[in-house]
Nucleic acid binder design. Structure first.
Lengths: 118, 118
DNA sequence: CAAGGTGTATTAGTGTAGCAATACACGTGT
DNA sequence: ACACGTGTATTGCTACACTAATACACCTTG
């Protein structure tokens, strides 16, 4: 899995779980780049994508900051459910393929939720 | 999404849901290729990957056949749960990001299960 | 055996994702 | 104003994914 994507997923998980709250700052691209030994542009790509997805916001001269969630953009409840559906489907298919029962799959999701939420 | 991957996902879903059962035959690469207007090799790549994943089996001279599931290969229950976990995590993060509650996410999975299972 | 079906190894072309190097624009703080 | 901190546009390169064209090996069926 590409580096920038790992960064995106990591930050998204932290924000979704509430461990990074709106207003919190994120390490600068150079800090992260140095820590990982990669090019700053690689980190910038991740930060940019997170901004495009509405997770981060640019604060001129300071860096990137966690944005306040704007649920309105996400649409109605039904629409939002429809958006997650493909991902859930993928997990479900793989689970059934491995011989897991519906109840066991639900348990996995419950465990995931409990780990992510603060 | 690449053509061959769409085919893989589609067949996997049909098998996982029980709509294609062990012993059932799958359309030949040329039939599918003609129907979709693509190269037979593209379909063959999909069929091959499905064989590598243990979903299909080659029946010399006849074609591809749905294989009997061998749960032993999947390992213990905990191991299988661990294998689905990343996919579930991904769905959960996206769900939380969209402002869905844990209960709503569970509901989406329930709906997915009911659609897939026969 | 011959004809027609299966899947596929091989080769080749095309597009693009991913990363890095450089140089730049913009803002803060002193 | 100056030095230093942000993020990033641009460019170039490399590797690999995806698809296709062709020719082949194998099996079943008449």
């Amino acid at each position: 899995m590409p580096i920038y994507r790992q960064l995106v997923d990591q930050v998204e998980a932290l924000v979704a779980g509430g461990r990074l709250r709106p207003g919190d700052t994120v390490p600068s691209v150079r800090q992260v780049a140095a820590a990982l030994g990669v090019n700053p542009m690689t980190v910038s790509k991740a930060w940019s994508r997170l901004e495009a997805d509405g997770v981060l916001e640019r604060d001129r001269g300071r860096g990137m900051v966690v944005a306040v969630p704007r649920d309105r953009e996400a649409g109605s409840l039904a629409e939002r459910k429809a958006q997650v559906r493909p991902l859930v489907d993928q997990a479900v298919v793989r689970g059934l393929q491995l011989g897991l029962t519906p109840a066991q799959l639900q348990a996995v999701m419950k465990a995931s939720l409990e780990e992510k939420l603060p």
